[in-house]
């Protein structure tokens, strides 16, 4: 099989992502109402939530495909697992950075040791350590096997982060307010909700696109030098 040849579905996905991401930016910046108290910076929230969602989804995919590797011992599951975790780390970083920029004018500080922020930071550190672990291992097989075990244990931090606003007192706003958290929920107008769902959809598409490309890179690296990789 020629790995250099791009599947038609990936081409379509590339085009969709390249069109829809700028479209989502335009939608959020120009077609959502300005929040009554916070002002324009509140618009960062749509991509902040989407990035956090995409990051967590990536980490879950990383654990599931890690499990698939352990069951089947086929390397392509490992390529998928490590690709999702790398992309997940990028999204988690975006969520943290955009959150800090929002917090600066709203909370008057870049960072507070709030449960949601703390657990997100822990989750990101845990997945940074995943790459430190892999870089210390010598063969493709041990990297895949031990990486998969680590990815499955590490995914425990995802529900911890997601439910942290339910478990502990927090000042972080609650978006999915079912079940009730302590944090200040804020009511979204229908147009805000539409923009949020559009952003979530676009980020999910972008996630698939990025993971797919990263997967192809892993495959290419393997075929270039299977003995070192």
């Amino acid at each position: 099989m020629n790995v250099l040849k791009k599947p038609i579905l990936l081409v379509i996905l590339d085009i969709l992502t390249l069109v829809l991401v700028p479209a989502a930016v335009v939608l959020v910046v120009f077609f959502t109402p300005v929040e009554a108290v916070m002002g324009p910076v509140q618009k960062v929230f749509y991509f902040h939530v989407s990035a956090a969602w995409a990051g967590m989804l990536c980490f879950i995919i990383g654990a599931v495909t890690g499990g698939a590797y352990l069951l089947t011992r086929r390397l392509h599951w490992d390529w998928l697992s490590t690709s999702s975790i790398e992309v997940g780390l990028v999204f988690a970083l975006i969520a943290i950075l955009s959150g800090m920029i929002w917090a600066r004018p709203i909370w008057n500080t870049w960072w507070v040791w709030d449960p949601r922020l703390t657990t997100t930071a822990i989750m990101t550190l845990v997945y940074l350590a995943y790459f430190i672990l892999r870089s210390g291992l010598n063969t493709q097989e041990t990297r895949a096997r031990l990486g998969a075990v680590y990815a499955i244990v590490a995914v425990l931090t995802v529900p911890l982060t997601f439910f942290s606003i339910r478990l502990f007192r927090t000042i972080h706003p609650v978006v999915i307010a079912t079940g009730g958290g302590d944090g200040p929920a804020f009511n979204m107008s229908p147009r805000m909700l539409t923009a949020l769902f559009a952003s979530l959809f676009v980020f999910t598409l972008m996630l698939i696109d990025l993971v797919w490309h990263r997967y192809r890179l892993a495959q290419l690296q393997y075929e270039t030098s299977p003995e070192v990789n």
Binding site: V41, F47, M206
Partner: peptide
Amino acid sequence: MPANTLNEMILGFAVILGTLI
């Protein structure tokens, strides 16, 4: 009257899109 946080919004989107790029 909403707070004037236009600069922060621009910074936010710059960082998000910058990281992605």
